[in-house]
Design a binder for these strands. Structure first.
Lengths: 349, 349
DNA sequence: CCTTCGCACTCGCTTGCTCGGAGTGCTAAA
DNA sequence: TTTAGCACTCCGAGCAAGCGAGTGCGAAGG
């Protein structure tokens, strides 16, 4: 039937949308009378009551207790996000303001990422976090092996986003500064422009040995590349936790503790967004979809940002399930866009 | 008189110490009866009551409201910390455990610092934070200028703790890779081993020009050194905020918000410990001594850690004024010691 | 003169109670 | 199928009483 949305007839869908909208706005369970008074539904509260009972039976709404209003369930939010809400766009002035504020950060990768998480946290009024660009999706730019003594040195690797990773190495055989320069040049010539993850250990070893070096040097080179590849992996910049305190759902201090703990365990934070890397566009996880009882009344909005064609990191907003999804999606997308642009300022060409 | 401590006769001092001790232990205002029952004071509660009234008049104790027990004031805690409490030492097994846990971090400066803040936060059951080594107290080890194109390159600077800072530069005149190598060698020969803060801009420029380069190259070199000097300045690793939620003083959510905000503004966090750099040993700041009304019922314990002879950073514990000062000082000192040792693992010799 | 005892008083916290408001479900009529 | 009416439920605010811990002070005691 043309009038159905997600298995709900038009009126049910509209009532569900209104309930979710109203609950997001007020934070209070919404009752049938309040709804008919505030929104022009064209039917009486008794009708709404019947529809609400159906929606509850269908799993879209819940009642905190008898004789209270209705509250959306995970499924209710899900339907709202997928089918009912109207997407928002940022206004031109908002875009401009985001761009201006991002300009405050110096052209350093870390600063730009941190600035975007601060900005997003403030704009969204929620906890925001941004993963640093996955270094294995960056490409290799330069290697430089620096001679310290006959049997030791420092390997420095520069990637397309300018992240220099450095590692000390020790050798079993003597080398000269010229040896290291020769090897550096060979590495640069052979790997320049490749993705870091495609600089596999075998060809690194092969190249090193073809320059006349032994296993020790090959191991040092491999270690340097592995270091560069994994270095910034779970680096995450988070910001805006204090906004969560404004939400009534955090009157309960235990909730808050879960959040703070998660904030400090970057590992967990990273896992939350990890599977968003599979999908190329924005993703929303609601309540239990986050896979943890502790986080069951939170939601997460995740949007990728790009370097060139490639999605290299994620901007996320974590907040109460009762969050203005359309608005936050727009804010996250806008920030992601600006962040993507600014990445070109730190690019090593 | 031999029996006086800080202007208090022996009995008053003992009662003050007991009140502070008991209040730290229980978190409840302590009354005269409770005190005489729990501790063997040898006098009746009425006497204690009189003494307490004196201590209150002297500004050492406060009453939350009439007919409640007494609570230490800033001055009361101050006297306790300075003169009354008995210092603690860590047991051998505790030291060992700290050392073991610090071994989990890889030999990378950032990881070691982060590990120590996590560890201290957990052991102290409070918010702990650790400043990264001030880079201007580190010494210069190596510079390497990498040729990218005729008029651009990357400058990499390695300090004694292995922090490689990198900066892109653009030139007005062409250079060759050999030019850059020559200049790198000159910089290494001239500045090796100096403190970064002693690599002043004038001598950098002079050296660059004496190698036959122009103002543009001199500016690039200066910028690289300034970048290295200021890079990690306010870098702070914090951990353990969730423990604060266990403290009864944070039932009030507004308190918590101040803390979270401060946590995110690394600037403020840094200011808190900044003047501790002047004193070579542990320092304790109590309540209003922190200089902010928001922080008035918190205290801060700060202990320096060293690289060689020099204090290069600070470990701090921020928690409720009602904190076990002696214990936390011992924990912070123990962690600082271990952190200092581990710094040698990342040293670039 | 300092210490102790006894006593009246204060104040905050907990418990129990009432009461109003908002909301529901059900039944019967339109 | 929608609506009006009604009885019922439940939460939460507001209030009063009682309890307990503590104080200050005057009088008695060493």
């Amino acid at each position: 039937m043309e009038n159905e949305v997600d298995g709900l007839d038009k009126r049910k869908a509209y009532i569900l949308a209104t309930v979710v909208y109203e609950y997001i706005a007020t934070g209070e369970p919404v009752g049938s009378q309040a709804l008919t008074q505030k929104y022009n539904l064209g039917v009486s509260s008794a009708t709404v009551r019947n529809e609400m009972a159906d929606l509850e039976a269908g799993g879209y709404l819940e009642q905190p207790h008898t004789s209270a209003g209705r509250v959306p369930s995970d499924a209710g939010y899900r339907t709202y996000v997928d089918a009912l809400m109207s997407p928002e766009e940022l206004g031109a002035d908002e875009r401009r303001r985001i761009r201006d504020e991002m300009r405050d950060a110096r052209a350093q990768l870390d600063e730009i990422v941190e600035q975007s998480s601060r900005l997003l946290g403030r704009l969204a009024g929620n906890l925001a976090f941004v993963t640093k660009p996955q270094s294995d999706t960056q490409s290799f730019r330069y290697a430089q092996l620096i001679w310290i003594a006959e049997r030791s040195g420092i390997a420095i690797i520069v990637t397309s986003l300018g992240v220099a990773s450095q590692s000390l190495f020790e050798l079993r055989n003597d080398v000269t500064p010229d040896d290291l320069t020769r090897l550096s040049n060979a590495l640069n010539a052979h790997f320049a422009g490749r993705l870091l993850r495609d600089c596999d250990e075998r060809s690194l070893s092969a190249l090193t040995k073809s320059c006349g070096f032994g296993d020790d040097m090959a191991a040092a080179v491999r270690a340097a590349f592995v270091g560069a590849r994994t270095q910034e992996q779970p680096g995450i910049s988070a910001s805006g936790a204090q906004h969560l305190l404004d939400q009534p759902e955090f009157r309960d201090v235990r909730k808050l503790r879960s959040i703070l703990r998660i904030l400090e365990e970057q590992r967990t934070l990273y896992d939350l967004v990890a599977d968003a890397f599979d999908s190329p566009s924005a993703s929303v996880k609601i309540g239990h979809e986050l896979g943890s009882e502790e986080l069951a009344d939170l939601s997460l909005v995740t949007v990728p940002y790009r370097f060139g064609e490639r999605a290299v990191g994620m901007l996320s907003i974590l907040g109460p399930r009762r969050m203005p999804y359309a608005r936050l999606l727009a804010l996250a997308s806008g920030t992601a866009e600006t962040l993507s642009e600014r990445l070109h300022d730190v690019e090593v060409k």
